[in-house]
Amino acid sequence: MAESKPRKAAAPKQAAKQSAVKPKQPEPHLAMVRRARKINRILAETYPYAHPELDFENPFQLLIATVLSAQTTDLRVNQTTPALFAKYPTPEDLAAANPEGVEEILRPCGFFRAKTRSVIGLSKALTEDFGGEVPGKLEDLVKLPGVGRKTAFVVLGNAFGRPGITVDTHFQRLVRRWKWTDETDPDKIEAVVGALFPKSDWTDLSHHVIWHGRRICHARKPACGACPIAPLCPAYGEGETDPEKAKKLLKYEKGGYPGQRLNPPQAYLDAGGKPAPPLGAG
C-alpha cells in the first residue's frame, strides 16, 4: 500500500487577510485644517443668518440671558426675560432686587435659586466695580458671579464684536464627531479649534456649529442623510442615512431651517404665517 504524502498546512485565510489590512493613518494636520475650514464654509452657506438665539437689546440683557440659558433652552429663556427686564431694566435695579421676587420670575428656567443668586450677584458686581456697565474684556467678565469663558465669549462676540469661540455642549459634541480634536475639557477644545481658524472667524464659526448641532447633527440620532457636510464627516452613518427619513429628524428652530435664505423671523413661516417645511423636504 502506497504511503500518502503529508499535506502542507494551509495558512489561515483570516490571518492572511488581517495581515493585509493596513492600519488607518492619522489625518495630516494640514488636511484636517482644510477639511475644517471647508466644513465651516458649507455651514456658512447653509445658515447665512446664524446668530445668537437669545433675545437681547444690550450687553447687560445678553449677559443675563446667557447665564440663565444654562441647563435650559433658549426658547424658555426668551419667554422669561421680558418680565425680568421689564421689572429690572438695569444692573442697579437687579442688584437691589428682592431675591424672592426674582426667583418667582426665573422659576420656569430651572435651577432658579442658583440663577437668582448669580444674576443678582453679577449685577451688584457690575454696579460696584464697573459703574453699571458690562465690561468688554474677558478677564473682567469671568470675575463676575456665574460667568465663565463660554458666557464671556458669547457677550464679547455678539455685544462687542470681539472674536471668541463659544464651547457649549453642541460645539463640544460636533467638533469631536468631526475629529477636529479629541479633547473633552472646554478650555482645551477652545484652544485647539481656535488654532484651526483665523481669529476673525471664531464668533461666526461658533454660531454655525451650534446651529448645525441644534438642527441636524443631534446627539442621539443625527440626520446624516440630510446633512450638507456628510462627505466631509468622519462620523457619517452614526445617524439616519436615508434622505427621506433623515428629513423627518430636522429640528424646526427660530431663525430658519437648513438652507433657507430669508431673514428671521419670517424665515420659518410660509406666506400664510404657518411653519414652513425645510427646503427640499418636498
Rank of each mutant, 00 (worst) to 15 (best):
K150Y: 04
V119H: 04
T46D: 11
D140G: 10
G146A: 06
E57P: 03
A83K: 15
P52V: 13
E100R: 12
S123T: 06
A95T: 15
A65L: 00
Q61M: 13
F112Q: 09
T81S: 03
L144G: 03
A70R: 05
K38E: 10
F60C: 00
V142D: 13
V67M: 08
T66C: 12
K124Y: 12
R113M: 09
P135Y: 04
R117L: 07
S123D: 03
Y88S: 05
P48M: 15
N98D: 11
L63C: 03
L54A: 02
G146C: 01
L106M: 08
G121T: 06
G146R: 01
P59K: 06
L94I: 07
E53H: 12
T73G: 05
Y49T: 11
F60W: 11
D140M: 09
N98I: 13
A95P: 10
P89N: 06
K124H: 13
V154K: 01
D129R: 15
A96I: 07
R113E: 11
N98M: 10
L84A: 04
K137Y: 09
T81Q: 02
G110V: 11
A65K: 01
I105S: 04
P99L: 04
K115Q: 04
P59Q: 09
K87P: 02
C109L: 08
R35V: 04
L84S: 05
A95N: 14
G136A: 10
K137F: 14
